[in-house]
Design a protein around this nucleic acid. Sequence first.
DNA 1: GAGCCGTGGAT
DNA 2: TATCCAAGGCT
Length: 352
Amino acid sequence: MDASRDTIPSNVPGKVLDWYDAHARTLPWRAAPGTPAPDPYRVWLSEVMLQQTTVTAVKDYFAKFTSRWPGVCDLAAASDEDVMAAWAGLGYYARARNLLACAREVAARGGIFPDTEEGLRALPGLGAYTAAAVAAIAFGRRAVVVDANVERVVTRLFALDAPLPGSRPAIRALTDTITPDRRAGDFAQALMDMGATVCTARAPRCLLCPIAADCRARAMGAPERFPVKAPKKAKPTRKGHAFWIERDDKVWLVRRAGKGMLGGMRALPDDGWSAREDGHGEAPIPGHWESAGRVGHVFTHFSLELGLSVHLGACPDDPPGEGEWWPLDRLDDAGLPTLFAKAARLALAEPA
DNA sequence: GAGCCGTGGAT
DNA sequence: TATCCAAGGCT
């Protein structure tokens, strides 16, 4: 048997791992190639934060969380309010709710994460991707890790032209064929680094790619054509109002319902706008209202034009419903999601 | 399967 | 400026 036959012409996993050993990015939650795996808590926390979120955006939040809650039991003991406020601005707030639920489940197990993909997959907030990533990166398991970077690298490598999202099972099967038995965690991180820095969505840097010679999309001369995606729907525009009620250097804040848009987050009272309908425009209390202008914000599946109305001074009774008077000099600690942080800046006449 | 769920950076 | 896009999960 000619042993070299297996390494010629491809040996894709070997080339990818060699590239990783030389070019891996240094990241706060990552062990250097060849060094012991980092704390599963840190791997899990980073993976949840990184869901649909860029490395740049995550770094400060990761530092803040690990400094304030060094271990999973510390996080599990935190209040919902503190965790949601700490997550404010990072987006996809269901992740924060699931993060805390997961931490409490793990704490109830003695602070030990399950060390198998299947066990991890059963925890809140861990889907197919995150369970595979944590199993591979933190526990050295062989797992097939597929995120958007891997989808791009693999569809190009094999010139798979079936459109996403229907092609996901095929992409997973192809990724399985190139995933090594050893160092599956490094391999996954290597493909993600390659996707982020070399095999980019637009203008890929094929000259820097360790598997360019194996890439069928490059051979076709059109790597940027992959992955093929189904056309997306147009975003509707919604209109609504938010209300700034100020008294004695405090502002009236409410907490949004636990599920749905910005669920569980502090907010300004609004007029009932939602992802599906415009607001009715009526203020929560009678009185003199003045317009502070409007802010725009683009969410995943709609755009919002939010008019902001301000009510100052006399307000003998609390507005109806649950809420709290929040000191203006501590507004930064309220944990307002970005839309309402913009509105607050407008109300306080601070330039955005 | 398809809709819902944030945000900011890159082009 | 408009569009695309990102280390997805849940229902």
